[in-house]
């Protein structure tokens, strides 16, 4: 996923290369590949791919997040899925509907998943109690 695939690069809208530093509030609509440094905030309606050597000190929001690098921020929000590879380091709270974590990845922060996923994971007794309360 993070090999030099020219086809993937050309399909993505923004590419922040390894020797480029971005500061400020980045708001995009397409896909983003980060292999350099970003500080501030990084938001997009598309997908975000973070390379092995990337360093991000920002709040992040994207549709799907594929992270192999380092993130420091207060929140990382993926509307759909966040995927952390073995080289990923996340010092941030994380929120997503689906999370995939490879052995070796590091997360220091709260992990919140979607409401539907949280209810499905509750014990059956608690779910029954809730349904009874709702009927009343």
């Amino acid at each position: 996923m993070f090999t030099k695939d020219e086809k993937n690069s050309s399909e993505s809208e923004t590419i922040i290369g390894p020797s480029v530093q971005v500061e400020g509030n980045f708001n995009g609509e397409g896909n983003i590949i980060v292999e350099g440094q970003v500080s501030g905030s990084l938001k997009t309606k598309g997908d975000l791919r973070i390379g092995t050597n990337a360093k991000i000190k920002a709040d992040i929001e994207a549709r799907n997040i594929f992270n192999a690098g380092e993130i420091r921020g207060s929140t990382v929000i993926a509307k759909d899925k966040i995927e952390l590879t073995k080289t990923a380091k996340v010092n941030s709270n994380v929120k997503a509907s689906v999370i995939s974590i490879e052995a070796g990845a590091i997360i220091n922060g709260k992990v919140n998943m979607s409401q539907e996923a949280a209810e499905e994971s509750q014990p059956l007794e608690l779910q029954d109690k809730k349904e009874k309360n709702n009927r009343k």
Partner: peptide
């Protein structure tokens, strides 16, 4: 942002230095 390959042996060990950056 483009080009900027390392001089000398650096270009063999640091291939990432030549990656383009694209900002719409």
């Amino acid at each position: 942002f483009s080009g900027g390959e390392s001089a000398g042996l650096g270009r063999f060990f640091n291939k990432d230095s030549a990656t383009e950056s694209v900002f719409p």
